[in-house]
């Protein structure tokens, strides 16, 4: 079937099998491979993207379901002039990534978390990231980065 999804501001149309998942659409039709697949039970969160502004696990959404929607992936997060998003900057400054595989999903989950709760406590950050696994960092620096990004977001630019 024919599906059109606006990804990072650009409409992508593709003729896909009914069973095509959003993550497959992004990776195969869109050629956007930052979004990773780490499991098959909606457990790991590596595939997290923003769907009309809210975080979803794109392995558990059919492309056909979101025909006509807008999706933001990691590749679309920086501003057009290449300036990284505050969450990306905080992940860099705080060493919140190692191998980078969970990072695209983790960053998108953090962006969504801060949109909902701009001033979270450490426990709220941890609870908010429960659906995103990272095997390398022990979460310590990820949590610190999200808190730092929240602080940066509250300070006048």
């Amino acid at each position: 079937m024919n599906v059109t999804i606006t990804v990072n501001g650009t409409p992508i149309t593709a003729d896909v099998a009914d069973r095509t998942l959003l993550v497959q659409f992004l990776r195969e039709a869109g050629g956007l491979t930052a979004t990773n697949v780490g499991c098959d039970t909606t457990s790991c969160g590596a595939c997290t993207v923003l769907l009309d502004g809210e975080s979803v696990k794109s392995c558990t959404v059919l492309a056909a379901q979101v025909d006509g929607s807008a999706v933001t992936t990691l590749e679309g997060l920086a501003s057009p002039d290449g300036q990284m998003h505050p969450v990306q900057r905080a992940f860099h400054a705080e060493h919140a990534l190692q191998c980078g595989f969970c990072t695209p999903g983790m960053v998108m989950a953090a962006v969504s978390l801060l949109a909902e709760n701009p001033d979270p406590t450490q426990d709220e950050v941890r609870a908010g990231l429960e659906g995103n696994l990272c095997r390398g960092t022990g979460y310590h620096h990820i949590v610190r980065a999200v808190l730092a990004a929240a602080r940066a977001g509250r300070e006048p630019a």
Binding site: T33, M84, G100, F101, T103
Partner: peptide, 15 residues
């Protein structure tokens, strides 16, 4: 801070 990160944070790694 790591030189590896900007790429991993903007376009993702190539696995």
């Amino acid at each position: 801070v790591r030189t590896e990160d900007p790429r991993l944070l903007t376009v993702g790694g190539v696995y």
